[in-house]
Design a protein around this nucleic acid. Sequence first.
DNA 1: TTGAAAGCGCTACCAG
DNA 2: CTGGTAGCGCTTTCAA
Lengths: 361, 361
Amino acid sequence: MHARGAGAGSRVTLQTVADVVGVSRATVSNAYNRPERLGAELREQILDAARQLGYPGPNPAARQLRLGRSGMVGLLFTEPLSYAFSDPAAVLFLGAVARECETANAGLLLLPSPPNSDMARTLRGAVVDSMCIYSMPEDHEAVQAVMERQLPTVFVDQPRIRGTAFVGVDDRHGGRLVGEHVTALGHHNVGILTPRLLADDYVGPVGDDRLAASTFRIFKERFSGIRDALRHGPLPDVRITTQERNNTPEDGEAGAHVLLDSEPRPTAILGLTDQLALGALRAARARGLSVPGDLTLTGFDDIPEAATSDPPLTTIQQPLVEKGTAAGRLLLDLLQGGPAKEEMLNIRLLVRESSGPAREG
Amino acid sequence: MHARGAGAGSRVTLQTVADVVGVSRATVSNAYNRPERLGAELREQILDAARQLGYPGPNPAARQLRLGRSGMVGLLFTEPLSYAFSDPAAVLFLGAVARECETANAGLLLLPSPPNSDMARTLRGAVVDSMCIYSMPEDHEAVQAVMERQLPTVFVDQPRIRGTAFVGVDDRHGGRLVGEHVTALGHHNVGILTPRLLADDYVGPVGDDRLAASTFRIFKERFSGIRDALRHGPLPDVRITTQERNNTPEDGEAGAHVLLDSEPRPTAILGLTDQLALGALRAARARGLSVPGDLTLTGFDDIPEAATSDPPLTTIQQPLVEKGTAAGRLLLDLLQGGPAKEEMLNIRLLVRESSGPAREG
DNA sequence: TTGAAAGCGCTACCAG
DNA sequence: CTGGTAGCGCTTTCAA
């Protein structure tokens, strides 16, 4: 009873068209896929007949079964797929991957990874030639499910699995750069704003155990890098307060308020992402705190907004677009049987106006 | 010679696993797809064997050929796919579609539509159950190619084809609202900044013929709406100058400069998108023109940046997210055999600070 | 609860 | 340049 094609009753296939025109299936197939192997005239005749019969063209599933490839690349992204579109860093990355796919005429299949039910089933059913896993926690069952499919896979940011293609940056180094920057400015009372470190709903300060158990490698590293720099820097007794939240400006704002309520009030707040730092900026403004006069703020990622905020954000610049391009290219390379390379991209500290010397206190 | 699965030589299929365990293919299939039809013990045994053999799970293409559906939704977007990720309106839309797909556990396949070569082929090969066409020019060959596949399809913004599912807004009405707003403010010398009206590389003023020939319905309507309001408003002899460009802030800026160079200088510039208007804002700033003191600026879409710009932009608010949600839902509905509805969403004029009375001159 | 058989629609091969 | 043939790997009856 389903609404099927237009009219005539049974399904129309390559065979139907072949019968009508009076040629064989193979010839009709060629008309679509190998135009040069055919008289232009015959080809037109076949295509016309197909049009008239309402033939939707060679069935993609059948074609793939036969061919063994699909021309599609899959992409798996942290938790809610829709979130990918609200995170500027992710958008930049996705755009670059998309551009690469486009040049190869490959489709990009965005896969959902809700913690829920049968995501494993969806993943198993995805018709793709290769996969990109973008910033997933190591222990996510989707990662497992994808690995089992034994597709050429490139991991971006996390997890990082030996022997698999990987694109990322040295996040710990980035953390260290930030830490050194703020200690050099004389801050010995700093707050850290971090996104989720584990796949749960915890909100609050980060204990050592939690950090150690973190399955979000990149944030764990950024965090550790900062902490190392603070602890082993020139300043004795740096006081560190922390808040863990979702990676949104809203959560950054809320977390910053908590941090700013603690006594003594931090003179610097380091966001592990720009999103978080931008939220902290709003919190500072809401309290009438001048940045960097009363409060130093730093981010991580260098999303476009970091440059246009007021004041512009001191941050770690990582090549978001390049990351996507590298991932896309690796994806395409793997399809050609290329090797599983690891690409570590460069980062650097970008000192803008949101950080300054600690006010004497 | 291709790098295939790990080791043993020939490919491992359902049959291989069945043979090893000593059951039939059907049973192994059930182990994956109908766990309840199986002893838990046997099931484990099968899954273990599969793991050991390196069986990647039921081949998706084969499964789809058999099943006749894929659980994937396709999305086709104007020209370069990568552009989709740089246009805030598109990102918002995509995010919402993605969210809907996610709830249904459907994958979202982003299809490239480069004007180039064999896009038609890619389109024919895309394994999807339904398609969303987002803001494509009417005459794009991809639209044709998709139609031929006879998939349940929903069109968003354009083209609008009778009898097909559609989501959009009354763009002409929006244009009219903008036009009325500026004439009410006493502007009789206005510039219009429009995105591409035809799929070519033209840059410059828009002639009547070009407008008439436009295949980008929404911009044509916005433009016409504005023009009608200006011509038939309370002010006699409104002077209109126009510039057509790509839909980016950079192009908006360049276009605005051209407009501002004309004599007499327009007292209002109306962007057919916020992107363009935001670019015009930069141009105004570069020239030391105060907005809205020296120049009134309006946009269209109400992307997030429109609210945070300085000054905030007077614009037509259209429900970008809702649009995506509606499209996503329609897509999913069509899959269930639902009817091809048309959804017209509401828009309204949002008067913010970028528009003001025309300075006497 | 399990197994045997029947295709799903297509394209590559190879012979004409 | 064209056509016949042989599966690609799976799921689903139906019968045991």
